[in-house]
Every structure is written in C-alpha cells, then in structure tokens.
Design a protein around this nucleic acid. Structure first.
Lengths: 205, 205
DNA sequence: CACCATAATCGCACCCAGTGCCATTTAGCC
DNA sequence: GGCTAAATGGCACTGGGTGCGATTATGGTG
C-alpha cells in the first residue's frame, strides 16, 4: 500500500502535470517556463526537478507503464502466435487502455509533438528505447525464429510503419479527432510492415 | 562559382567542425562548450550561431546532401523497379558515397549517438524528417501502387528496420569497425522489412 | 576608383534549463 | 519521543541560445 509520503508525492506530481497542461494550452510550450509551472503548482522551482528530469518529461508521464503493458503482452504469448501476432496484440493493448484521444494531455501532446522540436525529439527517443526493449524481449520469446538483430529490425519496421502512418494522418488537423481514420491508417501500416509474417487472418482491430 | 565570401564562409564552417571534432574527442561532448569551440576556431562565440543553429548540428553537417542523394535515387527509378527496389538503391547510394567508417567525424558521431542523449535525439529527428520526405517522394513516384500513408509507412518500416539492426550491432563496440558484419545486418534488416515487396532477386549488396 | 547595399562579425546584456550545495522540514519507524 | 531518511527549496552558478546594435568586410555599379 502506498504510504502517506507516496500519496503526497503523487499528488504533487499530478498537480505539476495539471498546471503544465493548463499553461501549455493557454500560453504555449516555449512561452511557459518551469518557474511558471512550479509556481502554479505551488512548489519551489528547485523542487520541480525532484519530480521530472526535464520540461519535456511532463508530457510523457506514463510512458513506462505503456512499455510495460507491451512487454506483458509479449510475455503472455499464446501457443500458436508468431512474432507478428504478438506485436499486434501489444499494439492493441497499448492503444486501448488509454483514453488517448479523450485525454486532454494526450491531445496536447500530439499537438506539441507536431509543433515543438524539443518535444518531438523526446518522443522519438522514448519510442526508440521502447522499440529496442520490445525487440529484445521478442527475440527472447522466439529464440528459434529470431536472433536479436532480426527481432529489433522487425520491431523497428513495425513501429516505424505505424509512426510514419500516424504522422502523415495527424499532419492533417481535420482527421485528428477521427478514430475510424486512425484505425484504418494503423491497419494499413501494420499490413505494410507485417504482411509476410502473419500466420493467419488478422482479426479486425 | 562560389564567391570569395562563400569560400571564406565555408572555410570558417569547416574550421568549426574540425575544432569541435578535436575537442569532442579530447574532452568529451558535454565537457566542451560552444565558447571553447569558437575560441579554437578563432571566431567570436556569438558568430558560432551564424554557422550552426545548435551544438548538435556540428555533428550532422552533410545531412541535407544525404537526403538529396536518396531523393535523387528515387527520382531516377528504372522502368521495372518497384518501391522496394528504389529504397534499396537509395540506401546503397547513401551508404556508399560516404567515407563513413573511414571518416573521423562519422566515427565520433556514432559514438556520441550511443552515449549522449541530446545527440541521439537530434539524430532521430533528422532520420524522422528524412523518412517523411522520402516517403512522400515515393508516393509521388508510384501513384498507382502507393497512397501517402502506405508510402510513409513503408519507408518507416524500411528505415526503422535498418536503424534497429544497426543499433543492436553497433551497441557492441567490437563490431563497429567490421564492414562485413554491418552489411550482413543491413541485409537481414532489409529482408525483414521488404520481403513481400521485392519483385525479383535482390542483387548482393 | 568611389560608393552603396548587403552580409558577416562579435561584444553585451539577457533569458531559461538544469545542477550542486546546504539548511530546514516532514514522514516513517522503533 | 527520538532517530533516520527523504522531500523541500533557497542560492549561486554554468551553459545554450537570442536580440540588439555597432563595426567591418565584400560584391556590384556607375
């Protein structure tokens, strides 16, 4: 059970995220300083860095949990699943358990990834690390089929395809709120990347 | 023809790159300040930013030319080449016309991409932008076969696979200097990403 | 050659992200 | 209640990066 200390810490953390969301939306990312955010959350500027290592980190508060969910999906592979099926299941898991488009932070994040280079850079780094981790686990889960180079290459292809497709789609502001279009684009991307790897028909996703 | 002004400018630019290479190797990336680099190249600190927009940019001086080479490879598609063949040719072009492993800067860059987050972030961003641009051109070159989403997804898969494979390979310091191992890994990555897209046997590359 | 527009140089003051240090407070635990 | 460990936050400081404005060098033109 979380101690009082932990709960307090979590509350402060959330207050920082909320304050930052508010300020980023109102004034813009670059125009908001860390001092502003800390003041709005009623903590000292110095203390901010005890909760987040950098300004960008505020926008990716749950990235660890996402990666863990994907890794779990790999760990629980079914008996007749190949690497591609496992990756698809992991993707569905990651995409589902989030309110994603519904969440205010997620929408803000998408906009800032498109418009602020520093945020995009951080997003790409997180994606890259996740991809590497997933690839290594995938190699471990399919030792006879995949060496590590191929596993990370496969994961890179998968993630790269999905990211590329989403990038094109979300560049058009109209389609951002359209879940059907997003699903269609993701479907096309996974088809492109995984076509030869699928053992059976892909269930509609 | 380049004017005197242009040549002078180019010389200063090169002097900055050389000075930075020297200092990064000797003292490390984080330990070298922009003031140090400017002083070593005998210009004012302020003038540095007239040549490079940031410290990281010093390590990617020719990235534009690389992208242009890849785009040229796409533009000059042969009559019976599909998207996959074009991408492979572009990759070979980009990989070849560089002294890559031979160049001191390239070796330094590889090391810093692995070890310095800021540099890795910049590298990923450059890769991402190049990928988008290439994907768009690919869609334009194959209008009946590829819509833009699929084209960028395919490019993303291709680039992601190669980058992932190289990342795994180059994480091992022993293999960095081994061109045969690198070629083998790239081959495996492109196989993973493009298998279903190749129309004919892939020439050894 | 003289002259002017343009672009490079660079010093200065400035802002902000992020760190190290240290004193003070606060929660957890016996 | 009293000890330990962690959180807090003030302060000074470094380093990347920008805006401004003065000075100087270059290219083109009559």
């Amino acid at each position: 059970m979380p101690s009082l200390r932990d709960r307090k810490r979590a509350r402060t953390r959330q207050a920082l995220i909320d304050a930052a969301t508010e300020l980023f939306e109102r004034d813009g990312y670059d125009e908001t300083t860390i001092a502003d955010i800390a003041a709005a959350a009623e903590i000292g500027t110095r203390t901010f860095f005890g909760h987040f290592a950098s300004k960008e980190e505020l926008l990716f508060p749950e990235s660890d949990a996402r990666v863990r969910a994907a890794l779990d999906a790999i760990a629980s592979r079914g008996p007749d699943e190949g690497p591609a099926e496992v990756l698809l299941r992991a993707l569905r898991r990651v995409g589902d358990d989030s309110d994603e488009m519904a969440s205010r932070l997620a929408a803000l994040r998408l906009r800032l990834i498109r418009t602020v280079p520093a945020v995009r850079g951080r997003a790409l780094q997180i994606q890259f690390e996740a991809q590497h981790e997933i690839g290594r686990r995938l190699a471990a889960a399919f030792p006879e089929e995949l060496d590590e180079v191929s596993a990370v290459a496969l994961t890179g292809a998968f993630v790269g395809a999905v990211a590329g497709a989403l990038q094109v789609l979300l560049a058009d502001p109209d389609q951002i709120g359209d879940p059907a279009a997003v699903r269609a684009a993701v479907r096309r991307a996974t088809d492109v990347a995984l076509k030869p790897w699928l053992r059976a028909a892909q269930p509609p996703g």
